[in-house]
Amino acid sequence: MLKISHFSKSYDSRHKAVDDLSLEVCSGDIFAFIGHNGAGKTTTLKAVVGILPFEEGTIKIDDLDINEYPLEVKKRLAYIPDEPKLYDMQTGAQYLNFIADIFDVNAVDRRERIEKYAELLEIRKALNDPINSYSHGMKQKLQIISAFIHNPKLMVMDEPFVGLDPKAAFSFKQLMREFCENGGAIFFSTHVLEVAEKLCDKVAVIKGGKLIASGTMDEVKGDSSLEEVFLELTEHE
């Protein structure tokens, strides 16, 4: 589903934010991407979704190169950034309709999906309110609904659990599992290692822009906890 090969990105000539990173996310995978602050997680995620131009390496989604077929790739993607930066002057419903229009989702499908996810995340009643009246968590819920609205093949998420209440976090984890069981794939960054350990089947650890471990959860952590392995890897590498 997602294949990153020898991807490198530098913001200046002296330092590489990400250096020769390669990994693969397959259909059905819930893939956690973990690392310290400033390790290169967000840079990688932004390059995957086509926000950040890059010169070295290739990123393919569904065998389509993001640089060669950006529109085709973006149609298959959904992205949730680390901060819910949305159009404050719109209502929640207007924002969701805007995203649905951009992804060419017909009226019947959008109604069904918005109603389903909004009820599940308990935000249905607030959808006609302006986004500037939303709390951080409500904005995050809106982003989650907008990510599901066009039934993508790959979801790329940067710290998606931040701001969610326990019930919404539980519902969201259920949705993630359901999405991957139906053939989708999820690639997300998180600092909550317990969540990653329980939810994900694959994990990659990045440090200083370089991938230091990648594989199935069992391969990477063995008999230890993910937290222990992460600390050991990032301290000794």
Partner: peptide, 21 residues
């Protein structure tokens, strides 16, 4: 305290991407 809608229905009409923009 911001304005809150009392409306419960949502307009689901679709538009082309250009119209949406």
């Amino acid at each position: 305290r911001t304005w809150h809608s009392t409306k419960t229905t949502i307009d689901y009409r679709s538009r082309t991407p250009y119209q949406a923009l």
